[in-house]
Every structure is written in structure tokens, then in C-alpha cells.
């Protein structure tokens, strides 16, 4: 019975039937998460749920701010980076989640 359950579990872990199943394939891998307010996260995906709340480990957050040069009116992109060891991310701020291969 336990074996059957395990088999069902592992088969269920492999099945891709809905978009969120694709994220499960990235569990325990490094992922790229684009967030609202020009924020980007790169980190190890420990857990997620249907709201795209996520738990990321060894996260590098990049915040991009645009400044206008006063003289030339050129747009200057200022990036600030920081690392956070373990982070819970609320799902409503998430725009996209990208699997490890494309996470540069």
C-alpha cells in the first residue's frame, strides 16, 4: 500500500497537466523570478503554492531604478543588488518564474 502511494506520488510529481506543474520541475533548482516594481530575484526554489507564494534560498535581489540625467536627459538605470539567505515571497508581486536553464 505504501509502495502504491509512493508510486502514485512520484507519478504525480512527474505529470505536467497545468502550468504550475512546470514550476514543480524547478523545485530545488535556481530560478529567476521577475517581480513588480522592477525587482528581480535569483535563488533556489524551496517551495511554492498556487498563489505563487514562494520560499527562495540564497536569493540575490536586483532592484532597477531609472534616473534622468539633469543635463542630457538620458535615462540612467541604477541597479542595486543584495543577497538574502532565506526569503518568503508573497505571490501577488510575482510576474514570471523562469526555470534554471534560462536563469543567467
Amino acid at each position: 500500500m505504501a509502495d502504491e502511494d509512493d508510486q502514485q506520488q512520484s507519478a504525480a510529481n512527474q505529470a505536467v497537466e497545468e502550468p504550475l506543474d512546470l514550476i514543480r520541475l524547478s523545485l530545488d533548482e535556481r530560478v529567476y523570478v521577475k517581480m513588480r516594481n522592477e525587482r528581480e530575484l535569483r535563488g533556489r526554489l524551496h517551495a511554492y503554492d498556487q498563489h505563487l507564494n514562494m520560499v527562495l534560498g540564497e536569493v540575490e535581489e536586483t532592484v532597477t531604478a531609472v534616473e534622468i540625467d539633469e543635463e542630457t536627459y538620458e535615462e540612467i538605470y541604477k541597479q542595486t543588488k543584495r543577497t538574502i539567505p532565506m526569503l518568503f515571497v508573497r505571490g501577488d508581486g510575482v510576474i514570471l518564474v523562469s526555470p534554471p536553464l534560462r536563469a543567467g
Binding site: I84, M86, L87, F88, V89
Partner: peptide, 20 residues
Amino acid sequence: KASSVRYVHLPNKVNPIEAI
């Protein structure tokens, strides 16, 4: 309020899977 939360920094020692 939940909707105003962006991130929660978890204590370093926590293993999220075990905690769940």
C-alpha cells in the same frame, strides 16, 4: 495586513521544508 507584505525574511537556521 497580508496584502501589504512583499517579502518575509526567515531566520537563517530555519529549514523551510522541515518547518512546514
